[in-house]
Design a protein around this nucleic acid. Structure first.
Length: 396
DNA sequence: AACTACGACAACCGCACAGAA
DNA sequence: ATTCTGTGCGGTTGTCGTAGT
């Protein structure tokens, strides 16, 4: 049908905004709110299209925007979330309060991407460029499974973002403090509008979660999920398992790498992102790696591949029940239903001892090591998504 | 001093989607 | 059911400042 332009382009100004224009826009929005963006320029006396005004406001003039250099924690957050979500800047931005998706995107393109590139890490796949150790199932499958996982997480993040927006609207007449609360309490569960009880901050780290699924399964129940109807319920659409992951996993915000160091590539290399590689003992100081080298992200992808693979092939509809029945999230993650890469003590055997699952994994100690590395890496990522305690978060 | 190349950031463009009419 | 509008989003381009020659 074709879409009419947002405004008549003739006679409208483009390009950089002048301070006068900014002032006009600010003054108008402060007094009237933005209302319809299309109508705003005329009312505010601006020779701009509504879309331009909206972008200027959301990316630059909004009072709750933090400008300036990105901290190392923020960089880590971006990189790790990018590993999970790809170029879903808005989703990433929901975990970086006061940063806009546009700013994050620009920062990625101009700084982080190049830096990873320099380090010999593919900024797209987050794997070392010369990583020859691809899975026996091939890179495409691992990528597909990572993608699937990312989709799931992305859906969650989008739901959270929606919540934040709704909360903003709701609280526009109240103090802005509630926004912060909602923003940090990103889980749908923690939404003040939800009748579901909030999961209390706890010492249950992913380590714990990984190793003690039984406690996790208790947070999943039909009542809670139904309480969450919107927006998180979108997760149950399409290929995503009908699990509210934010209800399933509790994260703790403590971080041993909380020490803020002077910015710089070398320091940066030693932390977070790099950490997950150095644990494997081969990647040092960001220099060209000389193999054997394996990305823990990649390995986890492979570990999860079987789980997600089975999930996506129909079993995912029952993933919820699966967790509850087996009472061990580790099983969900590590129990490879397809024999070749089974990590269970005995193939097909059910074990409630999740440590055993790792220790006795089919390939011997190397798998256990990888298991640990995977945990570390994903703890890093998942810590960033911690909603329970903003003050504990390394970046907030 | 003039010119060029490059990096950083702001802004634009076009598509997609949801919701209203 | 269809059309239209508003908005979100990701990719791309434009502009400006600065370092290098």
């Amino acid at each position: 049908m074709g879409r009419s332009p947002c405004c008549d382009k003739v006679g409208l100004k483009k390009g950089p905004w002048t301070p006068e224009e900014d002032q006009k826009l600010l003054a108008y929005i402060e007094e009237h709110g933005h209302g319809s963006w299309r109508a705003l320029p005329a009312k505010a006396g601006l020779q701009r299209c509504g879309k331009s005004c909206r972008l200027r406001w959301t990316n630059y003039l909004r009072p709750d925007i933090k400008r300036g250099k990105f901290s190392m924690q923020e960089e880590q957050t971006i990189i790790q979330l990018h590993a999970l979500l790809g170029n879903r800047w808005s989703a990433i931005a929901t975990h970086l309060p006061k940063r806009t998706d546009n700013e994050i995107k620009n920062y990625w393109n101009t700084h982080l991407k190049k830096r990873l590139d320099k380090m010999g890490i593919d900024p797209v796949t987050h794997k070392p460029k010369n990583d020859a150790l691809v899975s026996t199932e091939g890179p495409s499958k691992s990528a597909a499974n990572l993608s699937h996982m990312a989709q799931w997480e992305s859906a969650r993040l989008e739901a959270e973002a929606r919540l934040v927006r709704e909360s903003k609207l709701r609280s526009s007449s109240h103090s802005s403090s509630s926004l912060h609360h909602t923003l940090i309490g990103t889980s749908a569960v923690s939404s003040s509008s939800s009748s579901a009880p909030m999961i209390p901050p706890s010492s249950l780290s992913l380590d714990h979660a990984w190793n003690n699924g039984s406690s996790i399964s208790t947070t999943v129940n039909a009542t809670r999920v139904s309480d969450l109807e919107s927006p998180t319920s979108t997760l149950s659409e399409n290929n995503a398992p009908p699990i509210n992951i934010t209800s399933v996993i509790e994260f703790v915000g403590s971080s041993e790498r909380g020490t803020v160091k002077e910015e710089g590539e070398q320091e940066w290399n030693k932390l977070g992102y790099h950490e997950s590689f150095t644990h494997l003992g081969e990647y040092k100081d960001g220099k060209e790696n000389s193999m054997p080298f394996t990305s823990s992200l990649h390995e986890l992808t492979m570990t999860m591949a079987t789980t997600w693979g089975s999930s996506t092939s129909g079993a995912h509809a029952h993933a919820h029940a699966h967790v509850a029945e087996e009472g061990c999230f580790t099983n969900l993650l590590l129990n490879a239903n397809s024999g070749a890469r089974s990590l269970s003590p005995q193939d097909g055997g059910e074990s409630n001892n999740c440590h055993d699952n790792a220790r006795n994994s089919g390939s011997g100690s190397s798998n256990a090591d990888l298991y640990e590395e995977n945990k570390n890496y994903w703890n890093n990522i998942l810590n960033l998504m911690n909603y329970s305690s903003p003050s504990d978060s390394p970046m907030f």
